[in-house]
């Protein structure tokens, strides 16, 4: 029996619909799958916003004449000086201060303060200066053009420009001639799951314990407890950058 019908064949329509849906799934699925796979290990392998790494530096414990943290940082990151203090890279430095009114003398170490609102990240034209979700401020050596605007913008003089050819680099911190760099908070150690930076380790080894590193977001961490129990301050707090590095007894 032949049916004369001007209605479309519903079976054919269904078939086309199913085919399109299947083809769509085939196209999209691998992307979704890859995305899921890529995000799966974010907790253990990449930076996570569940942490904010920071430091507390006790200006009373920073010992006169000691350079343990500076030496440790230099060897950890392969920072080799050329006896040219004006151009040699310094990721951490000791500074001795005297209060202008009271004459009180302090000593402390300075490094990248790992701001929540870093001016270096704001001004960087290419986005090479960036902040990880765990609060660590870094320079992407692949897209830094060496314009040095971040060094103009940093209120802490925390960055160095690589002024010469590099030799004997450390695998912990790839560097680049003509690029800007600074304290990474030993990000290579953090990403390996370690809990101490090179500077803190050296300071503890020498028995000073002036540097305390830890997770500011973990209320039970040693640093959070210390910050809760004693007075501390941020350098240039007036700029409201919410630094990750804090100072006590300053």
């Amino acid at each position: 029996m032949s049916v004369k019908n001007d209605q479309p064949d519903m079976n054919r329509r269904k078939f086309v619909g199913t085919t399109v849906a299947a083809a769509g799934a085939v196209v999209v699925a691998p992307g979704v799958l890859l995305h899921t796979v890529a995000g799966a290990d974010s907790e253990s392998q990449g930076a996570s916003a569940k942490h904010r790494w920071g430091m507390l530096i006790d200006a009373n414990k920073c010992a006169e004449g000691c350079s343990a943290c500076v030496d440790a940082c230099n060897s950890e990151h392969g920072l080799i000086g050329h006896d040219r203090p004006a151009t040699d890279a310094q990721w951490i430095r000791a500074v001795k201060l005297k209060d202008l009114n009271t004459g009180h003398i302090n000593r402390l170490v300075m490094m990248c303060q790992h701001c929540e609102h870093p001016p270096c990240v704001d001004v960087c034209p290419t986005g090479a200066s960036f902040k990880r979700t765990d609060g660590i401020v870094l320079v992407d050596r692949h897209i830094c053009i060496g314009c040095r605007y971040c060094m103009m913008a940093c209120p802490y003089k925390a960055r160095s420009f690589v002024h010469e050819d590099l030799k004997d680099q450390s695998i912990n911190a790839p560097r680049g001639k003509g690029c800007v760099e600074g304290c990474t908070m030993c990000v290579h150690r953090i990403d390996r799951g370690e809990t101490m930076t090179a500077c803190q380790e050296a300071c503890h080894k020498d028995g000073h314990g002036a540097i305390l590193f830890g997770d500011l977001k973990d209320p039970d961490s040693e640093i959070s407890q210390a910050l809760k129990s004693q007075n501390s301050r941020q350098l240039r707090a007036d700029l409201k950058l919410n630094t990750g590095v804090r100072y006590s007894n300053l």
């Binding site: 310094q90 000791a94 209060d99």
Partner: peptide, 9 residues
């Protein structure tokens, strides 16, 4: 408010 007595930088 502070005077810098020593700094390598």
């Amino acid at each position: 408010g502070k005077e810098v007595l020593e700094s390598s930088f």
